[in-house]
């Protein structure tokens, strides 16, 4: 008896060690990435100068007499295409989520939901291909002559592709949050004589506000980090653009890294500057994730408040608990 309990104890400890190691592995991985990024990137930033690096408009890493390491054009590029993706993708995403959560007949839902999951799993190179073959020519067709364009590889093309790519993220998170809105709120609106649509738009949607915001924020994270699809349709000119120049090519932080990583000289300042671009990207993602968790925390607090009230409010549940 005693023997076996000791053996049990050992096994238990062993299992705990296995779980602990597994959990540790991911933390170590993130930590190592951070160490790598910052140890290689920060020196380059300080070497170039923080304001020159972030605010500089001249990117000429191969000019040996007067090299330039300003990444402002790429930062703006990332912001532009992300903003474009949000402008195009978020309204569609929110309407789709509303439809799926509150209006869609069950039969149709059984098709839409798997289609959406599939969409989330499609590799980005395929989105890129779709952009090259369909979107880019279409843009050229539509605006090419009028604006004297060389090709349809533009900020607009990247925004459209990203707008499509963020849909599964935005829709899934928004739908989950819309479904979580208590049915009583919907009924309260309908009982006042509101139509189904009005109850959904004016009560259910605002009630899921923070959750829908969280969906948008996660969409931003997805868009800003995308590389392959953007590279395939954005034109990649390392030029400083203004927001309304969306019919011109653009280069983002991610695409600049991937384009130049191939031929950069290891250990050079150029190499460091690319890694430093990764640092900037990392900081962006950090901010986005923090925003996301703040929005999510809001929602959880609200929900626990609601359920608390529900528990207090329902004498039946109390009774069964006491028995």
């Amino acid at each position: 008896m005693k023997q076996s309990s000791a053996a049990l104890k050992i096994r238990e400890n062993l299992m705990r060690a296995v779980f602990f190691t597994a959990a540790l592995a991911s933390i170590v991985a993130v930590a190592l990435i951070c160490v790598f990024l910052f140890s290689q990137g920060l020196p380059a930033i300080f070497n170039v100068g923080v304001s020159e690096f972030l605010g500089g408009t001249r990117w000429a890493p191969l000019n040996s007499s007067d090299p330039g390491f300003g990444i402002l054009a790429f930062i703006l590029g990332s912001i532009y295409v992300t903003a474009g993706a949000i402008i195009l993708g978020v309204p569609i995403g929110i309407f789709s989520a509303l439809f799926m959560a509150r209006m869609c007949p069950k039969g149709l839902y059984r098709f839409i939901k798997p289609a959406l999951n599939l969409m989330a799993g499609v590799p980005s190179v395929i989105y890129g291909f779709f952009g090259m073959v369909v979107i880019v020519p279409a843009i050229f067709e539509a605006f090419g002559k009028q604006f004297d364009m060389m090709s349809g590889n533009t900020m607009l093309a990247a925004s459209i592709i990203l707008g499509i790519m963020i849909l599964p993220t935005v829709i899934t998170i928004a739908e989950t949050n819309l479904r979580a809105v208590p049915q009583e709120l919907y009924e309260g609106a309908v009982a006042l004589g509101a139509s189904h649509e009005r109850a959904v738009f004016k009560v259910v949607l605002p009630s899921a506000r923070s959750g829908v915001m969280a969906a948008v924020v996660l969409g931003v994270g997805r868009a800003i980090g995308e590389t392959m699809a953007v590279q395939m349709v954005a034109g990649n000119q390392p030029a400083l653009r203004l927001p309304w120049e969306f019919l011109k090519g653009i280069r983002t932080m991610t695409t600049n890294i991937v384009i130049e990583m191939g031929y950069v000289e290891y250990g050079s300042l150029h190499n460091g500057a690319l890694i430093a671009t990764g640092v900037v990207l990392f900081v962006f993602i950090l901010i986005i994730n923090t925003l996301f968790s703040i929005l999510n925390r809001d929602k959880q607090e609200k929900r626990s408040l609601l359920s608390l009230r529900a528990k207090r409010g329902n004498p039946d549940t109390k009774l069964t608990k006491e028995q």
């Binding site: 709120l185 309260g188 009982a191 004589g193 009005r198 605002p206 009630s207 009230r309």
Partner: peptide, 30 residues
Amino acid sequence: LLRKRVGMVFQKPNPFPMSVYDNIAFGPRT
């Protein structure tokens, strides 16, 4: 219009997560 004429109060209070004013104004606005 029937539901406008026949109002309802539920077992659990179910105010909308908006201001007091907007809660009351929702019906007339509807």
